[in-house]
Amino acid sequence: MLEARLEQAGVLKKVVEAIKDLVQDCNFDCNDSGIALQAMDNSHVALVSMSLSHEGFSPYRCDRNIALGINLNSLTKVLRAAQNEDILTLKAADSPDSLNLVFENTERDRSSEYDIKLMDIDQEHLGIPDTDYSATVVLPSAEFQRICRDLSQLSESVTIEASKSSVKFSCSGDIGNGSVNLRQHQDLEKPDQSTSIELVEPVSLTFSLKYLVNFCKASALSPTVKLSLSTDVPLLVEYKMEAGYVRFYLAPKIGD
């Protein structure tokens, strides 16, 4: 059986909020190392991979591999009943029909209990190869969100160019064009506000802004986001959590 107690329900709320517009139904794969999820969007352009390590729970118990097939809309409805600061306990049997969720406030004088029906989801897992990326950019997640939102007003796609000292996001559309250039800089007082670039070789790749705007719904998970780029390889957009991550992969646009 699965029994996992999360100190802050907000963690799961934010994870679900981050991915629910990209995927509707998915399996939460639970085993002794934690809870993981991998799912593609309907059009097979993007892939989300989420991991919550057992270390993020206390206690955590899962003696067998259990796949929890969940409709994320339903889960969102139930999680709305939880405050971010509530303690959340997830429970499921070995071959479960439902997932049990208990929310307790920090004073422990209120507890709410919900059961959510599970579904059989036949999901194929993709093998994500280890990649040595040509460029890795870390920037504030709010900044990335703003850039994607702003540029999406002008165009469907953005070209991301990483060089040694800066990263440039540019687009062109019917009404004109726009670009945002971020120079590498270190903010010693607020390290989360820094922009850092690790470069093996310069890259320039074009991606759909619709998907990037969607990924940015994960911004609440982390103050920074990491973009990993290589020519003709999906973009990796990673939000790190205290004991896990949400990673999005986005297939590039190809051709002229």
Binding site: M40, H44, E124, H125, G127, S208
Partner: peptide, 14 residues
Amino acid sequence: KKAQGSIMSFFGKK
């Protein structure tokens, strides 16, 4: 115009 690639052409089925 650029065409949108599919994630499945980069990551194979397990």
